[in-house]
Nucleic acid binder design. Structure first.
Lengths: 351, 351
DNA sequence: TTGAAAGCGGTACCAC
DNA sequence: GTGGTACCGCTTTCAA
């Protein structure tokens, strides 16, 4: 019994090392060709005769061979891995981006290695681990990145794209919705709808997205001679609710509120309802992002649709090199893509 | 000028190959020690004198050396990568799980390689690519897995955990909320609250989670001698809304509806409101999951809280081996963890 | 077109 | 404790 246990233990602990995976060499031996030949079959652009290619593929299938991506990457110094840093998963916008992004990458044979930023400032150590995996590129959404960390990646010629964040880091590409334009158009829209006392609820202070949306919004108001009321909702539902209460209980409450993102706008709508106000009759609300929830009948939120698909396509071009085969290392790009107003039921036509 | 361009082009195209990363050998040379010594410093459990360790670490920092995870994995035949398959990112439950999961794994030095299942049945090819990366384990949430694919992983001694899915695949571990128990308790609860015409809105037909929740619910009803009305909402907000309309417009509508997940329940609440019904006065609604949205004031949904933290902790134990150092390969485990009723405002006390 | 062999950057076993 | 060396599984010259 004891004896049996020992044997079993040995088998178990040894299993991972003893059980060999099937390698290109095994396939070669099986076929009586060289390992190089097998390798060539699985290497794009290598020359193999059609007959041997077929034989190798058949044998590979039979033996259950698949090339080891790690060994390949070690040899080529390239991987098909993209590192993705993501922050606030409570905002459905980001999971939606993640999902689309990983789908698009997979179409091109790439995979996503994920880091969830816990705090606003990412722990440097965690992102730097991407370096150990030799990632082909890095995407940072909704998280801050220090320029010293960015420099590490630049040293290794790994492109970084800031997605939906404009970070003032010169060596990073940037892909954003044209936030200023969106803010401006929303300002024009609300004014055209007859609103005069306009408020903006900012997201996290000092984030580029919130600042840009505010700047555009303010510009429209200034153009028409109106004053801007501001508050801050920290990009969360609860923050939006609380800001709404403050704004709507003030002596001269706004008749329209533009929120730097959708979930804050949903918080505003719920808070307004709880205060006995009707949206949009007593107050109009506009969001930003166009998450799925915005279309739910409970909210029917008028909002700004971020051109997510284009943003993702552009990001991938930047990471992987664009269709012209141009390198992505030459110079950094800042791409602002215009979005689109989606009219639903949370804005009233006044007068 | 032309000349310059050519040179520049060469530099550029050659950059990726020419620019060598700093390796353990570089550090060794810099210090006049052997490469093995450098390696030992970065290998847990290897014996190095304290003085050389300090020297090596200092030099590594100075030169910007970090061990290449790919080379290490090739050599050790182990990686610190966990493959994660995720389906429905529209249900906030899953992004929340992803976020927590990746956070917990990172604490243990592991990373998440992501695959988003497009369709319900995962494309086998995509999951099998985990094999090429030699992942340490695989977690499948909200997606189906064929047993032939599972077998591939078993052949390579890679543990698979089905998270929140019970799949009848004998070689997979399973970690679930105790869905039957939850369904049963919800049935008891609604009956205790005085409801008599009870409906269940199923998720996707034939998913274990939905079936188990229904079974438990039905059991409670049968125990008390009540009949169960069922409909199907495919786990989506829209599906829940549509099912609610069907149920509530029927000749003898239910006075309480239990939904197999929260977002369907939210769809039910919104549909009921649109029909002019008040929740919970005209109809009670209960969900399952306890996503953040359930607590929003617009919904205040009474629901069943899945013990996500425990489920994740258990999943990680299964993947990485538990705290006793036991192997995870010996036998497959099915773990059902009990959840908790969260009472909010969507259920009425009748009579 | 094919095969032999030199890496890629580590780990781990072996002497010393 | 330290250095030498044989791999890990693949890609990629270079010759044949």
């Amino acid at each position: 019994m004891l004896r049996y246990d020992i044997i079993k233990k040995n088998q178990r602990s040894g299993a991972e090392n003893l059980e060999r995976n099937v390698t290109a060499f095994d396939v070669a031996k099986h076929l009586g060709v060289s390992q190089s030949t097998v390798s060539r079959v699985f290497t794009a652009g290598a020359s193999v005769s059609e007959t041997t290619r077929k034989r190798v593929l058949a044998a590979a299938k039979e033996l259950g061979y698949r090339p080891n991506a790690l060994a390949r990457s070690l040899s080529t110094k390239r991987t098909n891995i993209i590192g993705l840093v993501m922050g606030d998963t409570k905002n459905p916008f980001y999971p939606a981006v993640l999902s689309k992004f990983s789908g698009e990458l997979r179409k091109r044979g790439f995979h996503v290695l994920l880091v969830n930023a816990q705090s606003d400032t990412i722990q440097s150590e965690e992102v730097l681990q991407f370096l150990e995996y030799n990632v082909a590129g890095v995407v940072v959404t909704d998280a801050l990145l220090s320029s010293s960390i960015a420099a590490h990646f630049m040293d290794n010629h790994i492109p970084i794209v800031l997605f939906n964040r404009h970070n003032q880091i010169p060596m990073c590409h940037t892909v954003c919705c044209d936030n200023m334009h969106g803010g401006f158009e929303i300002g024009e829209y609300l004014i055209a709808k007859g609103h005069r006392r306009l408020a903006f609820i900012a997201g996290s202070p000092n984030t580029s997205t919130s600042l840009e949306r505010e700047t555009g919004f303010r510009e429209a108001l200034v153009k028409h001679g109106y004053h801007l009321i501001t508050d801050c909702g920290h990009y969360s539902y609860e923050g939006g609710s609380e800001a709404a209460v403050r704004l709507l209980k003030s002596v001269d409450p706004p008749d329209a509120i533009f929120c730097a993102n959708d979930i804050m706008a949903l918080g505003v709508i719920d808070a307004a309802k709880q205060m006995g106000l009707r949206v949009p009759y007593d107050v109009s609300v506009v969001g930003f992002d166009d998450i799925d929830l915005a279309a739910w009948s409970a909210y029917s939120l008028t909002t700004w649709q971020q051109p997510v698909n284009e943003m993702i396509a552009y990001t991938i071009d930047l990471l992987l090199g664009d269709s012209n085969g141009n390198s992505n290392q030459c110079e950094t790009e800042c791409k602002w893509i215009k979005g689109l107003l989606v009219e639903r039921g949370s804005v009233r036509q006044k007068h």
